[in-house]
């Protein structure tokens, strides 16, 4: 055999070729970048993280002031991202479960309503939905002088929602002060739009995942459980749900990661999440490479941690095959 027809030789040559092409591409791109940066007189480095950020973050769950450092601004943005992701994931799971139950009923009215909801929310872009909710709050709701007051202590205005807060001394009701409401819980229009939009959108997908999982368990399983004398509730809890969970968990994981990724759309309505902080930082300091590096690092870390955690859980509930 001719030496260049040898399989081992070909394998090694191909791999060397692929690896050097890949590394070459990366070197070419970084070389260009370095040349461009040098030409524009930009320096690369993470020193800026220790400087004062000097831009406001309108709302955050961690305390922040513009005199804080850039690294803290990033942390605050990340805190907001994680906060909205977690509460949206919880809300959407509950809503999705309700939706799945609704669509599994014999009631044609319930089925129709569930199907309409799912088809509508899944077949329109999330950005359009977010912008709609944002406009609904900021344009559609009345001014603060004539708030919508559907329940005592609940005020809906163009500046956001004012709700009673639960504190140590009982209910803390919002009270109208000279310019604004004081006390209670204030949800900004940006937060309301993000929370509503992301939850309603994700619920449509989660509902379908749960319904699909329940339907994928063969009907014989439930029938057998009933034939063995289990009560319908037991059949559901002991036979149907444990089997459905195995099917539901993998797509659920990617759905939760999707919620995290979709939360970056906060940039569109102006909720200060991590991408908002990154964009503002790049605007202010011109440190585009570093800003993007941090953003990528954050997303890769969260995605990997989530999928590892879900894989561990998945291997616990997975079918034990001998």
């Amino acid at each position: 055999m001719v030496w260049w027809r040898d399989q081992k030789f070909r394998a090694i040559a191909l791999q060397l070729l692929a690896a050097s092409a890949f590394i070459g591409l990366i070197l070419w791109l970084t070389g260009n970048t370095a040349a461009n940066l040098a030409k524009r007189g930009l320096t690369v480095g993470f020193d800026f993280l220790g400087r004062a950020a000097r831009f406001p973050i309108s709302e955050s769950i961690l305390s922040y002031s513009p005199t804080d450092h850039f690294w803290w601004a990033y942390t605050v943005g990340l805190g907001n991202t994680l906060f909205i992701t977690v509460i949206v994931a919880l809300t959407a799971t509950v809503l999705g479960l309700m939706l799945a139950i609704l669509r599994r009923e014999d009631n044609p009215l319930a089925q129709g309503a569930g199907t309409t909801y799912v088809e509508f929310f899944r077949n329109t872009p999330l950005v359009v939905q977010l912008l709609f909710w944002y406009a609904l709050v900021t344009v559609g709701l009345p001014s603060i002088d004539a708030p919508l007051n559907p329940l005592p202590g609940v005020y809906l205005t163009e500046r956001g929602l004012y709700l009673p807060a639960i504190s140590l001394n009982g209910l803390d009701m919002p009270v109208r002060a000279k310019f604004n409401f004081e006390g209670g819980l204030n949800l900004s229009p940006e937060f309301v739009a993000m929370y509503l939009g992301l939850s309603l959108y994700a619920a449509a997908f989660i509902g379908e995942i749960i319904r699909g999982g329940l339907e994928a368990v063969s009907k014989g399983q439930t029938e057998a459980a009933l034939a063995l004398g289990l009560a319908p509730k037991q059949a559901l809890n002991l036979v149907l749900i444990p089997q459905a969970l195995r099917i539901i968990i993998p797509p659920m994981t990617s759905q939760y990661i999707n919620i995290l990724k979709n939360s970056t759309l906060a940039l569109v309505v102006g909720y200060p999440d991590i991408s908002f902080v990154t964009a503002t930082t790049i605007n202010q300091t011109g440190q585009a490479l570093e800003g993007i590096f941090i953003l990528m690092l954050v997303f890769f870390t969260i995605s990997i941690v989530t999928s590892v955690a879900m894989n561990i859980y998945n291997s616990r509930v997975a079918l034990k095959v001998r």
């Binding site: 260009n32 970048t33 990154t278 964009a279 990528m296 997303f299």
Partner: peptide, 25 residues
Amino acid sequence: EGIRGLPLLSLLFIVSILLPLMLPD
């Protein structure tokens, strides 16, 4: 996995900022 780990929004953002930097002047 690198591309799938990022939200499309960040990817658009990255490409619109980085692409002009990464290509020859």
